[in-house]
């Protein structure tokens, strides 16, 4: 089954009674919008004002998720708890790198947690792509920031709409349980879900680099 997000309108309208919500809060039709915006605002307060209260709010939300992500990736509970602390410390220490036009807070936290997991598991290096300089005049506009913040909420909703088997497949891929050839062998991965996101990201990249 290929899902297209454009079919899910209105995304934040009244939700079907049978929609399965495994995550309360963001998936809510009203608070989803508000909470996503808040994460970005909180993160900017951390980045620009070293706002400790904003950090505490982000910690309350994300640290349990980082711990759960690491545990589901095979990390034992006590180590996962320690690593969640480390990941949140990175969020504070490297807040200057957060760019709300490029990634939601959840996506950014995910990349930090993923790298921590690689450190734990293998002690191998993870080469990273060259960083793009978006040029001196690319003050991100509010629409871009809003869009990037919404993407996670939209994907959470889209994932929760998937049949259990497909959702489990995606989760297993990101918990690190599937190799690239195992992912390739799976025909049930609903990649249509994010193709529109890819097109948007590409447009944005091209605009900013032109």
């Amino acid at each position: 089954m290929l899902l297209d997000l454009t079919l899910h309108q209105p995304i934040y309208g009244p939700k079907p009674a049978n929609r399965r919500m495994s995550w309360r809060g963001v998936a809510n039709s009203v608070t989803g919008r508000i909470e996503q915006t808040d994460f970005t605002a909180l993160m900017l307060a951390v980045r620009d004002q070293q706002d400790r209260a904003a950090f505490a709010a982000l910690f309350q939300h994300f640290a349990p998720r980082v711990k759960g992500f690491l545990m589901k990736s095979g990390t034992e509970a006590a180590l996962a708890e320690d690593c969640a602390q480390d990941v949140m410390a990175v969020l504070w220490n490297k807040a200057a790198q957060f760019d709300p036009a490029r990634a939601s807070v959840a996506t950014w936290v995910f990349t930090i947690a993923r790298n921590r997991r690689i450190d734990i598991a293998r002690r191998a290096r993870r080469p990273e792509p060259e960083v793009l300089d978006w040029g001196p005049d690319t003050e991100p506009d509010q629409a871009e920031i809003y869009e990037a913040g919404q993407e996670t909420a939209r994907l959470v909703a889209a994932l929760s709409d998937l049949p259990e088997k497909q959702r489990a497949l995606i989760q297993r891929a990101f918990y690190g349980e599937l190799s690239h050839s195992e992912i390739a062998a799976e025909t049930g991965l609903p990649l249509g879900t994010i193709k529109s996101r890819i097109r948007l990201a590409l447009e944005r990249l091209r605009q900013n680099l032109s």
Binding site: T107, V109, L132, L155, I194, L202, R204
Partner: peptide
């Protein structure tokens, strides 16, 4: 690069769905 950014967003969505108590 754009596709990678999109897949990392999926990672963010999976993380959102993974909470356990601290």
């Amino acid at each position: 690069r754009a596709a990678l950014a999109a897949f990392e967003t999926v990672g963010g969505a999976v993380l959102q769905d993974s909470a356990v108590p601290l």
